[in-house]
Simulated scan of single mutants.
Amino acid sequence: MSEGRGGRVDRINRSAVNFGDHGSAEYHEAPRAAADETTAVLLDAVRTLREHLRLLTETDATTGLDGELAVVQGEIERTGRADPARLGRLRMRLETAVAVVAGLASTAAVVQVIAQLAG
C-alpha cells in the first residue's frame, strides 16, 4: 500500500502480520483441544499405543497400524475429533494386527474407547 492511499483488510487467517517500521509479527497456532472427554481419552490411548509399538519388532502389521494411529492422532489434534469412518478403519487395522499387539495393554485401551465412541 502506498503512502496517502487508504486500505482495508477484511480478514486475515492463519498468518502473522506486521504494521509499522519497527514492529514484528509471530504466528503461533495452539493445537485444538479434544471435543470431549472420550476423545481426549482416545488421543491419550493412541499416543500410548504408538509408543508401545516401537518396542515390538517391526512388521507389515505394526507399520500399517502405526500409520493408521498416526492419522487418527493428527486428526484429533487438528480438529478435536476423529471421523467415525477413520475409527472403523483403525478398528480393522487392530483386528489385522491382533496377533502381534494383543499382549499390549494399550491395545485394549484403544479398542475400548473406539467401542465407546462407536456406540
Rank of each mutant, 00 (worst) to 15 (best):
A40N: 08
T62I: 06
A33R: 13
R86N: 07
R86T: 04
A115I: 05
L94K: 03
T39W: 01
R89C: 05
G88N: 11
G20W: 01
R50N: 08
V98Q: 15
V9R: 06
T39L: 03
R8H: 15
A82N: 03
G67Q: 11
S15H: 00
H52E: 15
L49T: 01
E29Y: 01
G4N: 07
R32C: 02
L43I: 07
E68S: 08
G88C: 05
A61S: 07
G64D: 08
A30T: 09
G64A: 09
V110Q: 03
A25E: 05
R5P: 00
E58M: 10
A45P: 02
G64R: 09
V41W: 10
E51A: 14
P84V: 10
L94Q: 03
R54F: 09
G7D: 10
E58C: 04
D60E: 15
D36W: 06
R54L: 14
A25V: 00
L117P: 03
N13G: 06
T39E: 06
T96S: 10
M1N: 10
Y27Q: 02
T38A: 15
I114A: 03
E26K: 06
Y27T: 02
G20R: 02
T63N: 12
Q73N: 11
A118Y: 07
E95V: 06
I12H: 00
R32Y: 02
S2Q: 14
N13C: 10
T96Y: 14
A35D: 14
L49W: 04
D83C: 04
V71S: 11
M1H: 10
H28M: 08
D36T: 05
A97Y: 03
I76V: 14
Q73A: 14
E68I: 10
V101G: 01
S106A: 15
I76W: 01
A99Q: 14
E75V: 05
E58S: 13
A33V: 07
A105I: 06
P84Q: 13
R86K: 09
R50Q: 14
L53Y: 04
A105Y: 06
V101W: 01
A82D: 06
T57Q: 13
T48C: 08
Q116F: 06
A45L: 05
A118K: 13
E29N: 06
T79A: 11
R54V: 12
E26N: 10
V17R: 00
T48L: 13
G6K: 11
F19S: 11
L55I: 10
V9L: 13
A97L: 04
R14S: 03
R86F: 03
T57C: 04
V41L: 12
T39Q: 07
L55P: 04
T38M: 09
L87N: 00
I76G: 00
Q73T: 12
E58K: 14
D66I: 01
L53M: 08
A34P: 01
R5G: 11
A30S: 13
T107M: 03
F19V: 12
D60I: 12
A25F: 00
E77G: 05
A102T: 08
A102V: 11
D66S: 15
V113Q: 04
D83K: 05
R8P: 03
T79Q: 11
M1D: 14
V98H: 12
A108G: 14
G23R: 01
V41M: 13
R78I: 00
A45Q: 05
T48I: 10
V101K: 00
L49I: 01
S15C: 04
L53E: 02
